[in-house]
Amino acid sequence: MTLRDLVVVRLGVAVNLVVGQVAAALLLPVYLDTIGTVLVATLVGPRAAIVAGLTSQVLNAVLSGNFTWLPFGVVQIVIALYAALAARLGAFRRLGTAVAAGFGLGIVAASTSAPISYYLFGGATAGGVTAVTTVLRALGAPLPVAVAAASYSTDLLDKSLVFALVAVVLRSLPRQMAVRFPMLAR
């Protein structure tokens, strides 16, 4: 990675860590905290995106003190690779395809995080998700089903939004900025 790539990665990590504030201001039940990782995947590439995702996970734990999120680092790698692939296939060129690809990532990400949540923590992690799990369980759903449903419902909306927002950002990039990212030309 060049120094400039590293600066972009740092920026992606910082965006991951602060963007939740926007969702909170709008009272939206989403994290958006992978938007920086997906952006780095489209601007620099998969390797940089993996670094951005894992660094975000570690710093998130350090800043919040909630180290129970560390095992979910695996999900960050999956997101980075998927986003880079989606970018290469041109999914971000149109809003519709971006949302569809984001929906796909939601399925993939939830399929990765639900087993971690179920086997390592008995379905109890990441605040909002646990509450949904508990409600579903109270309504009579078996625990694995409740965990999975909670993970899917949050991830599908979250990742669709992340991909849509990245598509909007890429479309909004000024020419002077866009030409400095050769990945975009592909």
């Binding site: 926007v22 938007i35 909007v168 900025m177």
Partner: peptide, 23 residues
């Protein structure tokens, strides 16, 4: 509220990207 995400997230990312070369 979903539509309000754009005017809030896009300037955050654009202003940050604008600083990349400087940094």
């Amino acid at each position: 509220r979903l539509r309000a995400l754009g005017p809030l997230v896009v300037p955050l990312v654009l202003s940050a990207l604008a600083e990349v070369d400087e940094q």
